[in-house]
Nucleic acid binder design. Structure first.
Lengths: 217, 217
DNA sequence: GATTGTGAAGAGCTTCACAGCT
DNA sequence: AGCTGTGAAGCTCTTCACAATC
């Protein structure tokens, strides 16, 4: 009996991990993989893996495991990876350019439809196959492209304004690289990627390890 | 009575947020800030803020709040931000170069001591004030610089090897940008930053929102 | 009156353990 | 024998609520 009331956030995060493992085994599509094996590859306990996968109903066969190909398809569908997500980028500085060039995005179904920059000197230049557009064109271009995802890679001071522009243009989710908490209306999702936060987190954990006699898990 | 048994990971993550708010108020160093205000700025409930801050003992004054300057100092110390962290970068592709140029790292106490690349054609070039070194020099340079943090910005296939080299050289923490789960000995901390994971997460949340009649928090 | 610090309740996530299937 | 699916137990983090303090 399916357990798909609602997929929790922790479960969603782990789904990405499982997906990565399955992706690396597409060549063995007909083979089976056990929850134990999936767990070992992702650092997740086997019982947890089974609980997570139970969201889709009973895909596994006792004594055997999960069909790689079948599970891969189900997971892709559940995570929304069975479609192409039109995506736009705002901010073509160092980070923005690196993101545009990042090869895995396209492979995973994220397709950049446009790139924007406030700097008039950047507008018109081509990077990674896109011509940088001015902010004035944002709303029209986004609507026309029906992009649902926006990446914000602008300085902190500009992030809030840009976020509002994206929302007004109909964007449904923002991947935010600016070190700022965005206030967005309900119905618009945000995921933050903050390099400084990440480094601080690391420094914090190093201190934990050094401070303790016993190492903290 | 202090509650500093052990600072949990969720608490640690929020500390970064508080720190950011306090940082933006250094000009009002003598003023006070309440848990409610700190919470509003960071999206955290006030009771949670107080619980988190109670780790340092009783810094707050009932009816008033927390001294901005005092709290800032305590937090910086607790998060290990009262020192300079010597840091090295491996991989000087698009992402690596963007990280080296990221201005906030230096501001927050992270100091790049060296950059390495496997590509012989890159070695010797200067980026952001550093001369790219070959991998052969990694161990010696890292030991000499006494760097504790390593950033991995290399292709997935190379990440595990690089991680091992960093650990052998005495690194205590790794910020990993490669989409790979690193297996490291106890005592070495890892924080992963995976752009594709983040985007997948976002796509997943957008789907949640669209699927539901009621919006999920 | 405003705000802290905190015990207790609540919610959510993880792990255990085992019946049941192949 | 091996493995799944899952109820129940265990654990951790969050929220509530209020006495104590300024």
């Amino acid at each position: 009996m399916p357990n798909s009331d609602r997929i929790s956030k922790p479960t969603g995060r782990r789904m990405s991990l499982y997906l990565r493992v399955l992706h690396s085994r597409i060549d063995q599509a007909n083979a089976a993989i056990s929850s134990k094996e999936l767990g070992a590859q992702t650092g997740v306990k086997d019982a947890q893996v089974r609980k997570d996968l139970a969201c889709f109903g009973s895909l596994g066969r006792p004594g055997v495991g999960y069909g790689v190909s079948e599970l891969h398809n189900q997971l892709r569908k559940a995570m929304g990876m069975d479609q192409t997500w039109k995506t736009v980028l705002v901010g073509t500085g160092n980070i923005g350019r690196a993101l545009l060039a990042y090869p895995r995005f396209r492979n995973e179904g994220f397709d950049f439809a446009a790139a924007f920059d406030q700097d008039k000197k950047a507008v018109g230049k081509r990077i990674s196959g896109l011509t940088i557009q001015s902010m004035d064109e944002l709303k029209r271009t986004v609507k026309k492209s029906s992009a649902l995802i926006g990446l914000i890679a602008v300085p902190p001071a500009a992030a809030a304004t840009v976020a509002q522009m994206l929302v007004d243009a109909g964007i449904r989710g923002i991947l935010n690289f600016a070190p700022v908490r965005l206030h967005l209306p309900q119905g618009v999702a945000v995921v933050n990627v903050d390099f400084t936060d990440a480094l601080e987190q690391l420094a914090f954990e190093i201190r934990l390890v050094k401070a303790d006699v016993k190492v903290v898990k």
